[in-house]
Amino acid sequence: MTNEKTTDQNQRNQSPVWSNGVLVNYLFVSDEKYEAIMSSIAAMNSLSLESAKTLFETTEDIHKDHRNNETRRRPRPDYMHGHFPAAINPLHRAHCVEHLVNMSVWLGHRQETLHLAVNCLDRYLSSVAGSYDLRAPIVIVAVACMAIACKYVENRVSEFGLKEFVRISMNMFTCDDIVRTERVVLRQLNYELAGPTAWSFLERYLTVAELGETRGSLGDMASYVVELSLVSYEMLRYLPSMVAASTVFLTRWILFPGDAPWDAKMEDYTRYQPSDLKECVLELHALYEVSTNGKPDLVAVKKKYDGGKYNGVSSWISPPSIPLNFFSNSYTDHVTT
C-alpha cells in the first residue's frame, strides 16, 4: 500500500493540477494539499472526489494528445516552394490570412476559430500542392475554411449567415461558391479538423505563466504575438507548441524586460528549454518589431490590437534586442518564480 501511495504521489508531482481548464497548482504538493485541491474541484463542479481526480487527469491527457498529434496534423512547412504558380506565393497567402483576421473582427469570432481556419487553409493547400485547381482562388478557400472553423468551434457560421461572409469579401463570390468549396476542403482533409494549433497550446501555457494582476496584459500581448505568426508563412517551420511557448517567452520579456522570461516551471510543463526556443523567439520578435515599430505592408493584426479592447498592445514598443543569456539552459536552473 505504501509503495502504491508513493507511486501515485510521484505521478501527481509530474503533472499540473487543473480545474475547469485553470491551473490550480503546478509545484509539488503533499497528500493533504492534493486532497484539498481535489475536494475544491469536486465542490466547484458538483462532482464526487473520484470524478474530480479524473477531471484534471483527463485535461492533462488532452494536452499530451495534442503534443502527440501536432506533427501528424500539420501542413508541410515548404508546401509553396515550387509547387504553385508564381502568383500563388507566401505574400498572397498572407493577404488571405489578413482577410480572415478582418472577418474575425467584424463577425466577433473566437481566437480559436481564426487559428483553426488558418490551420485548415494551410493543410488543404499543402495536400493539393502541385495539383491545385487555379479556377478556385485561394481567397475562396480561405473563406470556406473560416466557415468550416466557425461550425466546428462555435456551432454557427455567423450571426448573419454566409451572406455576411460574401459582403465582407466584396462580393467576389457567392454563398453557393463557399458551400461548394467547403465540401472540397473537407473531403481533402478527410474531415479531420481537430488539429492542435498554437492557440490551443497558448491557452494552457498562459495559465502556467500567470503573473497575478498582469494576467490581462500578458494575455492580450500573447494573443497579438501569436496572431502575427499566423500571417507569416515562414513560421510554419515551427511546431504549434513551440510557437506557443516562444510567444509566452517573448511576451514576458516585452512586458518585463529586466526579468527572466523563462523559468523551471515553464520548462517543466512545456518540455522546452530556452535554447530550444531561441530561433523561434527571435523570428517572432522580428515580426513584432516590423509590425509595431516599423511600417508593415500587412496591418490587419496591428489594427485589431491597437484598440482599447486589447489595451492597445500593438503600439507598445519593445527593446530592440533580447539578451542572449536568457537563452542559456543553465539560466533557468535558479529561476523558479
Rank of each mutant, 00 (worst) to 15 (best):
E234K: 13
M235D: 04
V231K: 09
G219V: 15
R237S: 13
L211R: 14
Y205M: 08
S229W: 02
R237M: 12
S217I: 03
S229V: 00
Y205T: 11
D220L: 05
M221T: 07
V225G: 04
L206H: 11
E227W: 02
L228V: 07
S241L: 07
M235V: 04
G216L: 15
L202D: 09
Y238N: 06
L228Y: 02
V243F: 00
M235W: 00
A222M: 04
L206M: 15
L228P: 03
L211Y: 13
L202R: 05
P240S: 08
T214C: 12
M242D: 10
S223F: 02
M235K: 03
L202T: 08
M235A: 06
V243S: 07
M235G: 02
M242R: 14
L236M: 10
S241D: 09
D220A: 10
E227R: 00
R237H: 14
L211V: 11
S241W: 07
F201I: 06
S223Q: 07
V225S: 01
L206Y: 09
T214N: 13
R215T: 13
L202M: 08
S223D: 06
S241Y: 08
G216S: 15
S217G: 13
R237E: 13
A209Y: 01
L228N: 06
V243N: 01
G219S: 14
E234C: 02
E234Y: 07
S223H: 03
L218H: 04
L239C: 06
